[in-house]
Design a protein around this nucleic acid. Structure first.
Lengths: 195, 195
DNA sequence: CTTGACAAGTCAACACTGTTTACTTATACC
DNA sequence: GGTATAAGTAAACAGTGTTGACTTGTCAAG
């Protein structure tokens, strides 16, 4: 049916049986769909169809649909380069990062991932990511006493503004003066992080 | 089968056909299950079974499952009495509220509802609730220029600490000194809200 | 070159979800 | 007392994630 001629299948020969290539196809399809549609809106069958593979391969290669999301999350960078510079300028850099994330549309993947936090099975994935990629690096970066507690408050602000932007749109913040908002957030982060 | 005798059914007579009572039974069952299990973990059929009614009645009375959650959310108070007192003491009261919400286990319903934010169809419900029950009251309460923007930042902090507590457990914050944490958050909220 | 083993890929089913439609039945009013 | 109307029911629909048995391509050893 879909193979009208055995000789014609050379046109399909670009896709030989290749575990790694197939895995990557699925992963690419998932990332694209999660990005544009969000985790819960995308079905396994759609991901598989878009990747041109069989549905069962998702579970074969990733255990389950959530394994796909876990992998997509794992390969996404958070706060790129934020914890490298001078710790004294971290509040300012955080403030600018937040404003530029709040004011402009957030990255589609970030948006999709934030929409996918409810899946109970994903809780562990998010927890690990939050701790290892954000909380701990920030705590190490600022140093001093109670570094983790101080970092936690700052991270709380970051997360909260993200939620506000997603749920309510953060319209009031997007309409306000950028410099004033950066200054306000900077002093907020200073309070969060000071010893 | 479940009616072995027509005369015996008088034992079941406590439940006559009563629209309002049935509606309430479903609502109670849903609130209890959403509270203990979370929205997505609870199926319509389970809610109906627990309420002792037919599944189809959920859609008859609430349109859809999400209508049930919307109603549960609507009847739940948020920030009780927070926007009544002196606006000058709002940062302190917010800080204490957050610490006592972060340190102790949050109300099960609040926890369940926070876990249910991913459902795309619920977005509008949460948005309306956030604006009408939190953002606008707080903006009115603090007054002054850019009240909505200032309130938005404070609400962002509130939301973020909730997310942090739910995802990561906010262990570092729960282990830190209560008075110090209240003081830190108070100054954070002062920064958020000051003109 | 042929054969066999193993991995890659497929298919159909399972158990579940929320929702709808057509149906039955109890209640209250004329 | 009969009947319209609402309350309640049963069964199906279309969809989900997931699984196990199956087929088939690939590659190495005989």
């Amino acid at each position: 049916m879909n193979r009208p001629d055995a000789a014609e299948e050379c046109a399909e020969r670009t896709r030989v049986r290749d575990r790694e290539a197939t895995r990557q196809r699925i992963l690419d399809s998932a990332r694209e769909l999660f990005t544009t549609e969000g985790y819960e809106r995308v079905s396994s069958r759609l991901i598989a169809a878009r990747a041109g593979v069989n549905v069962a391969l998702i579970n074969r290669y990733f255990g389950a649909k959530r394994g796909l999301l876990a992998e997509v999350i794992a390969e996404e960078a958070v706060f790129p380069g934020m914890f490298d510079g001078d710790p004294g300028t971290l509040p300012r850099r955080l403030a600018e990062y937040m404003v530029d994330q709040v004011l402009r549309e957030p990255s589609p993947l970030r948006r999709a991932l934030e929409q996918s936090r409810a899946d109970p099975d994903l809780q562990a994935v998010y927890q690990e990511r939050l701790r290892d990629a954000i909380l701990e690096p920030m705590a190490r970066h600022i140093g001093g006493p109670d570094a983790r507690a101080r970092a936690s408050v700052a991270v709380g602000v970051v997360l909260g503004l993200g939620v506000l932007r997603r749920v309510e749109g953060a319209t009031a913040l997007r309409d306000s003066d950028r410099a004033a908002l950066v200054a306000r957030l900077e002093s907020v982060f200073v309070d969060c992080l000071r010893e």
